[in-house]
């Protein structure tokens, strides 16, 4: 019962946030709706018994990625020219009716393909008793340094590379 209410709440947040992210014309609002959607995803993780992942989702997205996005919007907003270098009218940056039509059509095709793939799963959806929720922190910790230790190390190198790369790229160039 409680789980169901939680699930419906989280699903509504996720899908509503995602829909509004796609719908709104204001980039700042889109970012806030994305935050709502990501919180909903954290709620879905919680209903799936993935407590550590839910907290990680909150820490990384709410604390890091969304604020970073907001910062980037603030640093790049302002100048808007509506013609490109050939003097032709550009598509507005948040899309217009034409782009949405194209996106909608291609999404219908994609949806049919994915549904074709998912259909056998929907048909054979038998499940027994689900295990009770347990703490996953210790098990994830053990898995990270035993089974997945190579991926763990590679991801740490990736993060270091991203850190250095982001600093180097966004640094203003000398003599310019």
């Amino acid at each position: 019962m409680f789980l169901k209410i939680m699930f419906i709440l989280a699903a509504t947040m996720t899908l509503g946030g995602a829909f509004l992210t796609a719908y709104t014309k204001n980039l700042m609002h889109a970012c806030v709706y994305l935050l709502v959607s990501l919180f909903g995803v954290a709620g879905l993780y919680a209903t799936l018994g993935a407590d550590f992942l839910a907290a990680t989702q909150l820490v990384v997205y709410a604390g890091g990625v969304v604020i970073l996005m907001l910062f980037a919007i603030m640093l790049t907003g302002g100048i808007q020219n509506f013609v490109n270098k050939f003097g032709l009218d550009k598509v507005p940056s948040m899309g217009n009716g034409k782009t949405y039509t194209i996106a909608g059509l291609s999404m219908i095709i994609t949806a049919f393909i994915i549904m074709k793939v998912l259909a056998p799963i929907f048909k054979t959806n038998v499940q027994g008793e689900l295990p009770a929720f347990a703490s996953t922190v210790e098990e994830i910790g053990v898995l990270l340094v035993t089974d997945h230790v190579l991926a763990f190390e590679i991801s740490s190198i990736l993060l270091l590379g991203a850190l250095v790369g982001a600093a180097v790229i966004s640094r203003p160039r000398r003599g310019k």
């Binding site: 992210t21 796609a22 940056s93 948040m94 949405y100």
Partner: peptide, 12 residues
């Protein structure tokens, strides 16, 4: 689907 729509429809 929502994510793909955002990626295709937006130009920002």
């Amino acid at each position: 689907i929502a994510g793909m729509t955002v990626m295709i429809a937006r130009k920002n």
